[in-house]
Nucleic acid binder design. Structure first.
Length: 488
RNA sequence: CGGGGUGUAGCGCAGCCCGGUUAGCGCACCUGCUUUGGGAGCAGGGGGUCGGAGGUUCGAAUCCUCUCACCCCGACCA
């Protein structure tokens, strides 16, 4: 195994894969497109999960579990929904294996299912089939259910965390008595996603609405958070859908209103996935590897002891012990690396793994009653007295969290352009970056631009300014100001 | 699904053209000693149905046929 990773400037996607593998986040599974999330990578997902789980519980949502197997017939109910997912479904057709006459293992043809079962690519259909049973009156509403599960979308090309055949996510599915309330819910969740991304993952995001072409199959409106990766391409980091009455009608979910009338239920659904781990890697990572925001880092402080002999070892160990204890008392996730590797190796290793703070402790430090701290975000290296540590570390972690966000935000802003001509547009888009420009609102224009440049409308931002703006392609008056970029 | 490529130790590869000792190298791994403030050194060691099947041959990693798998590039997706 070679040292280091392929530099970003040489080949960004190889850099990405190198980091994922060498930082020990994930590995390839035996079936094409599958991924094993290793403990260090899963810790990241666990932290994201815990944080968001807390947010939705504080806003009245509850967790449940629905089966991963969905009757095929459910998918025929909502026309656009089936159209959106038909091409990437895994289907269970048999329930048994048997040994053939020549000793090989085969699918038992006798075990063929009468109705095939679809492995969920998303759970709207099965959830709404159940909601039909659970909802009778306005008193049953709103119904605010979420689940943390795996889903399967059979993809042609895959990339670890960003696009895999099976991935983990949360999917929220809510039912409401009015359209207004459902829309409010959609936007509330979008705001929670924004907070999660910005305050927790230190990833600045644009919020806005997807165009008709880009919205979720079966939705009335799709809102999204959209982030710029280190190669200036865009990544959809979370989506929140207002479903109107589409699924209620497809699954015949009605309720009695206060004034004793019958109406279809209004719905939302929303999701974030393990793709967010990919976003963290690509937004913050550098040529040394990961740079993890402290709030998500499995270890916020990694202590590298330096000892030339057994005496030193004992000296350093005794010195570190109360530090580790004190940090843990202060809810700092700290790790002592006593592995057999050389200090130099450990420095590189923990830089690869993105630990926000490295603490070096050797005999010299013990003698001076101090330690050496190194910030992963700035490479800044400094000495600090032992007695100041417990105060300084939490502050420093906050600083790193903020500094990573600021760096990412500056990068995005520097690479976001407002432009006046289509030539300029093509130029910027081909070199990577966001373009903010006018769009006449016509799907034909959208498709034409996509075919000519491979860039898509990432979102119609909430803060759009259409006054005096004209369409970058057709020259007609702009219906919307939009963000264009090449996307993952 | 169209185009290109690769299968030899855990990983990365050489050997193949031109068949011939016991299939080799780097990294990783194991043991021991010396080391440790930016990827340590030396010595010893373990590990292979050469992707699979068939064929040619006295003899196949090497030549022929078939097959399987995976990777990269183009149309869809969180």
């Amino acid at each position: 195994m070679s040292k280091g990773v392929t530099p970003q400037s040489k080949d960004y996607s190889t850099w990405y894969t190198d980091v994922v593998i060498k930082a020990g986040l994930a590995d390839y599974g035996p079936v094409k497109g599958t991924m094993v999330i290793k403990p260090y990578g899963f810790a990241l997902w666990d932290n994201i999960k815990e944080s968001f789980d807390r947010m939705i519980k504080e806003t009245g949502h509850v967790n449940a579990y629905f089966p991963m197997f969905i009757p095929k017939s459910f998918f025929t109910r909502e026309a656009k929904h089936i159209e959106g997912f038909a091409k990437e479904c895994a289907i269970v057709t048999h329930t048994r294996l048997k040994t053939d006459s020549d000793g090989s293992l085969i699918v038992d043809p006798e075990s063929r299912l009468e109705e095939e079962v679809i492995i969920r690519p998303t759970s709207e259909t099965i959830i709404w089939s159940m909601y039909k049973k659970w909802i009778q009156s306005y008193r049953d509403l709103p119904l605010l259910i979420n689940q943390w599960v795996n889903v399967v979308r059979w993809e042609m090309r895959t990339r670890l965390f960003l696009r895999t055949t099976e991935f983990l996510w949360q999917e929220g599915h809510t039912a409401h008595a009015t359209a207004e309330e459902a829309e409010e819910e959609t936007l509330l969740i979008l705001e929670l996603y924004r907070q999660l991304a910005e305050d927790f993952l230190a990833i600045p995001v644009l919020t806005g609405l997807k165009t008709e072409a880009e919205k979720f199959a079966g939705a009335e409106k799709t809102y999204c958070i959209e982030a710029m990766m280190g190669d200036k391409r865009s990544l959809q980091a979370g989506t929140s859908h207002y479903l109107g009455q589409n699924f209620a009608k497809a699954f015949d979910v009605t309720f009695q209103t206060k004034d004793n009338k019958e109406d279809y239920v209004y719905a939302t659904s929303w999701g974030i996935s393990t793709r967010l781990v990919g976003a963290v890697i690509m937004v913050h990572g550098d040529d040394k590897g990961l740079r993890l925001p402290p709030k998500i880092a499995p270890y916020q402080v990694v202590i590298v002891p330096i000892a030339r002999n057994k005496d030193h070892e004992k000296l350093v160990k005794d010195f570190i012990e109360p530090i580790t204890f004190g940090l843990k008392e202060n809810n700092v996730r700290v790790h002592e690396d006593w592995s057999d590797n050389s200090p130099g190796f450990k420095f590189n290793e923990w830089e690869m793994k993105g630990a926000p703070i490295r603490m070096e402790v050797g005999p010299r430090d013990v003698e001076n009653n101090q330690v050496v701290l190194v910030r992963r975000d700035t490479n800044e290296k400094f000495n600090i007295g032992k007695e100041d540590l417990l105060n300084k570390i939490p502050t420093l972690l906050d600083e790193i969290q903020l500094s990573l966000f600021e760096q990412a935000k500056n990068f995005r802003d520097e690479n976001t352009h407002t432009i006046n001509s289509y030539d300029e547009f093509k130029d910027i888009v081909s070199n990577g970056g966001f373009v903010r420009c006018g769009w006449d609102g016509d799907a034909v224009t959208e498709t034409a631009i996509k075919n000519e440049t491979k860039a898509t409308i990432r979102c119609i931002p909430f803060d759009e300014q259409t006054e005096g703006l004209s369409c970058i392609y057709s020259g007609k008056p702009a219906k919307h100001e939009v963000i264009y970029a090449k996307a993952y």
